[in-house]
């Protein structure tokens, strides 16, 4: 825990303890830990002298922040309009079926997280998903299963 807080202090120092930098601080913390654990937010609240409810207001407003742990492997299905008209909903169904979790959820073993994004900017490949860093263009059930099996 102390090690984690030291890492948080480093992030705060990089941005300064002004309230204006709060979103940037939270973004860096999210990147470091993949989510925003409660005790870390409490620590930030103390360090910046900002009420904890103010921080929760931010973290529940912005889509990028997560208050629950994220899996070691992330699956993002693009829900952009271009992907939508090419069958993104069906792709999301397939992915959800393979992983056994719904969008926004993390599997019990914290192996996978399934999320939707509004546009990946890879419309030519639509419907498209990103499995960790790999783009999969309209993968079949079998393709997704293969990808999931290859994850440690």
């Amino acid at each position: 825990m102390l090690g984690r807080l030291a890492a948080v202090d480093k992030i705060i120092e990089a941005h300064g303890s002004d309230r204006e930098g709060l979103i940037q601080i939270l973004l860096d913390i999210q990147r470091e830990f993949r989510w925003l654990p409660k005790e870390i937010l409490e620590h930030v609240s103390k360090r910046l002298d900002v009420p904890i409810n103010y921080i929760y207001n931010l973290t529940t407003f912005y889509a990028h922040f997560s208050l629950v742990p994220k899996g070691r492997h992330s699956m993002h299905v693009c829900m952009g309009t271009a992907c939508h008209v090419r069958g993104a909903e069906r792709l999301l169904d397939r992915t959800s079926q393979v992983l056994g979790i719904k969008p926004g959820q993390t599997s019990r073993d914290e192996k996978f997280s399934l999320d939707t994004v509004n546009c990946l900017g890879a419309c030519a490949l639509g419907p498209v998903m990103i499995a960790d860093d790999e783009y999969l263009s309209n993968p079949t059930l079998e393709d997704i299963r293969r990808k999931a099996d290859s994850c440690e």
């Binding site: 952009g80 309009t81 271009a82 008209v85 090419r86 419309c123 030519a124 639509g126």
Partner: peptide, 11 residues
């Protein structure tokens, strides 16, 4: 424009 969707030349 981002010309996308059910069009041949997306881009």
């Amino acid at each position: 424009f981002s010309l996308v969707g059910n069009v041949k030349n997306t881009g």
